[in-house]
Design a protein around this nucleic acid. Sequence first.
DNA 1: ACCATGAATACCTTTTCTGCATCAATCGAT
DNA 2: ATCGATTGATGCAGAAAAGGTATTCATGGT
Lengths: 293, 293
Amino acid sequence: MVDIRQLRYFITVAETLHFGRAAQILHVSQPPLSRQVQALERDLGVTLIERNSRHARLTASGERFLDEARGVVAALDQACRNAQLVAAGSLGELRIGFMMHAAHSSLPPIVKRFMEERPEVDLQLKETLPSEILDQVLRGDLDAAITFGQGAVKGLAIEPILREPLILAAPDDHPLAGRGPITPAMIAEEGLIVTPRIVAPPLRAAIDSYFAAGQAVPRVRLETQLQHTIISLVAQGIGIALVPHSMARLGTRGVRFASLDEAPEIEHALVWRTDNRNPALPFFTRLGGLGRA
Amino acid sequence: MVDIRQLRYFITVAETLHFGRAAQILHVSQPPLSRQVQALERDLGVTLIERNSRHARLTASGERFLDEARGVVAALDQACRNAQLVAAGSLGELRIGFMMHAAHSSLPPIVKRFMEERPEVDLQLKETLPSEILDQVLRGDLDAAITFGQGAVKGLAIEPILREPLILAAPDDHPLAGRGPITPAMIAEEGLIVTPRIVAPPLRAAIDSYFAAGQAVPRVRLETQLQHTIISLVAQGIGIALVPHSMARLGTRGVRFASLDEAPEIEHALVWRTDNRNPALPFFTRLGGLGRA
DNA sequence: ACCATGAATACCTTTTCTGCATCAATCGAT
DNA sequence: ATCGATTGATGCAGAAAAGGTATTCATGGT
């Protein structure tokens, strides 16, 4: 059976056209070299090197085979190097899930740094509903994810990376827009636009706790999944909303923000399976601290 | 050192994720298989298969390496097959030179058939001056060539493939145009357009012999290398010419042809080095007979 | 806790590879 | 034309590697 040693031997002989010199280069003696090339030719059933006891030169088959053999050897070396790079976490792919609330806050600095440090790792970002994210991590569809902080889950590592307060988002012609700490009573009568409970339970819990602390009951006017849609509806004057502080950075026209009195906080956390053996994963999770920036 | 056997073993184990079954498929017993995979991992310094005594599954490096190892094995198999195809003359390249006079006569049928029979051979056609063609064959720049027939040359095989008479080419308003056998005396006073002697000695020799047989002396008005140019100049009424019969097939406007009395003939021949070992060459030279068509 | 399964290890046999010595063929010089 | 130098091939013995059988070790399910 043709093997790599035979290819390496043949390539060297083909390059020097001299069995003795090739043997020196390969650090073997000449007889085994001759025999290996013979064995290769016998296996192929093809004469690759035409040789009399004085000269050696390639046949047409030999020229062709030299070319392709070089490719095979190079591909093998590359494969070995790549396997090592993958094991070192410098090459490969990493599937990261994130809830939309992380897109403007904790996610970007982590992703940016990771891509700088591990440019050869194919980072696959998948925006997912918070309610589905844990399942996907547990199933192994995601290597890691950024979602809301929560209690321990068996088999998962959960590392908090960001706490941010909720703030009030109101149309810019609204009397409370831009004003100081807002108490629950001040907005209890307003129509509220919120994310459905099923989509982001911790966010709804934070909103509920805020109103509960002021003995108020929020009036939900509309539910919609995407944060951007909520902001957009606020800008249209359809209602007000309580949103994570990072939404204020977007500078959407027609919306102004105001801090809340005793503002509830939501927590972002990095989550991954403790038995996930993707070598690139530790280099991602160790960046969790950047989420605070 | 990593070798092909290790790759094949690893691939089979990776595909079955079961050392025992893989060993059956490979027709070896399980212990050597385990040892080869271990050796591979030791050489790479990387764990490819995570295994306890119950289950086996690939690591990230293993997945990657499986992919690339398959490529390496496939490339090797392909290289072996191609070497055999080249040796059989079914793959490779063949450099064929030809004089322009062959382009409309002996060359096309040979080339057409060869391309049908050996579609994977890269046929490189190089139009060359007859005066240079033998040197290129002797130097090895060409595997074979079609040129004028001539005496034996040491180291070359020369096989005649076509004899064709010269004919008169004249402007279509010329009194001799289209007429019967032309004797030398009938055109001795006309201005003649010819190829330079150095470019195609046998052609000039044929023309000379024609006039010499009639005790006439041609009046050369113009010399130019390419046959097409000669025909074109004739069409313009600049002169007449004696050209190979195959030129009549072109049907150039403004030119008519007439046969010559005791017409001299020129011979086309296939030429190649007898020591040329290009396996595709015999399949080309054996088609020489088609040149007569 | 025990049993069945599957991979690793121990040990021996067989095969293959290497190196040394030598042979054979070719080319150049005399 | 002959001889010597060069270079690839061959014969043989020792070394290394691969394979096979028997057995052990670890794990997951009952």
